[in-house]
Amino acid sequence: AEKTGIVNVSSSLNVREGASTSSKVIGSLSGNTKVTIVGEEGAFYKIEYKGSHGYVAKEYIKDIKDE
């Protein structure tokens, strides 16, 4: 049951290796980017990222929809 969301930041949002603010940053997404959410862990969504997965803070994702 995948969902999509939109990155809701003015600059960019860090994509992390794990569901923690201390996890390594593996990339970033600019505002209004559409993401595919494959799961959630605590305050983070697990998303599809560059052929693999990454984690982003839930508070910066809006317009969550079921695909």
Rank of each mutant, 00 (worst) to 15 (best):
Y60K: 05
G51I: 04
S22M: 15
V38D: 02
S10I: 15
V35D: 00
N32Q: 07
G5H: 04
E40N: 08
H53D: 07
G39Y: 04
S52Q: 13
E67D: 14
S10V: 12
N32Y: 08
V9Y: 06
S52C: 05
S20A: 15
S22G: 12
G42F: 15
V15P: 00
V38Q: 08
T36S: 04
E2G: 14
Y45V: 04
N8Q: 15
G39M: 04
V7D: 01
T36N: 13
I37G: 00
V7K: 01
K65Q: 14
G18V: 13
D63E: 14
G54I: 01
S23A: 15
G31N: 12
T33G: 04
E2T: 13
K65H: 15
S28Y: 08
G18I: 08
K65F: 10
K3I: 11
H53T: 06
T33N: 08
S12K: 15
K46E: 06
S28D: 15
D63K: 07
G18W: 11
V25R: 05
V15S: 00
R16H: 11
G51Y: 07
K65G: 11
S30Y: 07
E41S: 09
K50P: 03
I6Q: 06
N32A: 12
N8T: 11
S23E: 07
G54Q: 02
Y45P: 00
I61G: 01
K3M: 08
I47G: 00
V56Y: 00
G42T: 04
S52L: 15
D63V: 14
S22L: 14
K24H: 14
S30R: 10
E17C: 05
I64F: 10
K34I: 10
T36A: 14
V56A: 04
L13K: 02
G31H: 07
G54N: 01
R16Q: 12
I6F: 08
E2H: 09
L29V: 12
G5D: 02
N8A: 15
I47R: 00
R16C: 05
L29S: 01
Y60V: 04
T33S: 13
I37L: 05
G39P: 00
E59I: 14
E48R: 13
Y60L: 12
L29K: 01
K65E: 10
I64N: 08
E17L: 06
N32E: 11
G5A: 04
V35F: 02
A1Y: 11
G31K: 10
G5L: 02
K24N: 12
D66I: 12
V25F: 05
R16M: 12
G27Y: 04
T33R: 07
N8K: 10
T33P: 03
G54H: 02
E17A: 14
K3N: 06
N32M: 14
E41D: 14
G42E: 07
Y45S: 01
N14P: 07
K50G: 10
G42C: 04
R16L: 14
K46G: 02
E17I: 11
Y49V: 03
G39E: 07
K3Q: 11
T4I: 08
V9K: 10
K50D: 09
G31F: 10
T36W: 12
D66W: 12
E59A: 10
K46Y: 09
G54P: 01
A19W: 07
S30A: 09
G5R: 01
G51R: 05
K62Y: 08
Y60T: 04
I47Q: 00
T21S: 03
S28P: 04
S10L: 14
V25E: 05
K24Q: 12
S30N: 10
Y49E: 01
I47M: 02
A43E: 15
